[in-house]
Nucleic acid binder design. Structure first.
Lengths: 197, 197
DNA sequence: AAAAGGGTAAACAGATTTGTTTACCTTACG
DNA sequence: CGTAAGGTAAACAAATCTGTTTACCCTTTT
């Protein structure tokens, strides 16, 4: 017999089903408001199985936040990999995608990491950490892009872009309407203001 | 003497105690996670009294959101009333206050209206409405200020400022660190980019 | 002094939550 | 074929939540 410590498969189908169902429900209805029973029913999984993969609800929340980030990362990878676009064009594209997908979309529920902080700040360090890691990763994406630009301080510009993206998310979440401003122009202006050329 | 209008439930001391206690608890711990029993204990009020003023928890949440807005409005009124400051200086001051109070303050829990949307979007129209009204009011404040500026499109600029302020709140909520960028410069750049002069 | 508000304390109902366990089933595989 | 892993269904414990009611107490006013 293998005397390994019983390793829960990290890539089990069931585990993924649970995370996907939980992601949808947490996004639409919030974390506290979503009961474990509902998740388990939507995932077509028994409670016993859920208990094996996620001993506590908060463990599942952390996993969902990581899944959320991995999803975002994957959806960006194609864009970032393209070599027919300049870094500036990639940045603009990120914002235009966001504007198109978030504003005037009643199915948009804001950044999951921010929502999670609203419910768990000061209560669960693991969840706080997952949220921080998500935003840190977003910042890193911008940092990779801005360091290719002829600007005075790429780090500062990356943070400014992060703030801008965050603001779009928050506003779109509350005010559901077509995005009334020219995001492309705003981003380009922001970059131009720091250009050394 | 004081024969002012008297003891209207809207202005009751007890009512205010409840709202203030609830505001603190909702901000720190979230809405669902905060039980009515705890609110009532912190407000030094019996459950029967709470039930008189707020037949349901969601009624209290709406009242708290209105209180949150009224508070913000009052804290801005001094600044907005000053006539030794230009509109541009007032706008910059709003952002510098926000940067100082939000970043690197572990007691900052983000915009209550955004947090509320995260928990109640699609569930309670009254709460959704209160959140929307809060952001609309914030936008109006900026609109009043930008229409004094020599810019092409004051309405657009106001919305951009709103997005920027929102972004600062969201980022500060998750990444608790000293604000690493020069907010004053960023706001001025944003305004300058739309100046006609 | 008596009546009437306004408030308190506490018990209670009914539903729902997370977390735990037991007993059974299905299916892949040596 | 037969075993063992992995999953299901369902009952259950214990706590908690909102919402409701009853009985009482204090203070003000008349």
């Amino acid at each position: 017999m293998s005397n390994e410590i019983e390793a829960v498969p990290k890539e089990s189908i069931k585990r993924l089903q649970i995370i996907q169902a939980a992601f949808k429900l947490f996004s639409e209805n919030g974390f506290y408001a979503t009961g474990v029973d509902l998740i388990m029913r939507q995932a077509h999984v028994s409670k016993r199985t859920m208990y094996v993969y996620f001993p506590a609800k908060n463990d599942l929340i952390v996993a969902v936040l990581k899944f959320y980030r991995a999803n975002y990362e994957r959806s960006l990878s194609d864009l970032l990999a393209r070599n027919d676009l300049s870094s500036r064009e990639k940045i603009v594209a990120i914002f235009e995608d966001a504007a198109r997908n978030w504003f005037a979309n009643s199915q948009f529920h804001g950044c999951l990491a921010v929502n999670a902080m609203g419910e768990f700040a000061g209560k669960d360090p693991n969840i706080e950490n997952a949220c921080l890691e998500f935003k840190t990763w977003e910042l890193d994406v911008f940092r990779e892009l801005t360091k290719e630009l002829p600007v005075m301080n790429p780090q500062d510009l990356a943070f400014k872009l992060l703030v801008l993206l965050e603001g779009m998310g928050g506003i779109a979440q509350v005010m559901k309407q077509p995005c009334p401003i020219d995001i492309k122009q705003m981003v380009n202006d922001l970059i131009d203001c720091q250009c050394v050329v």
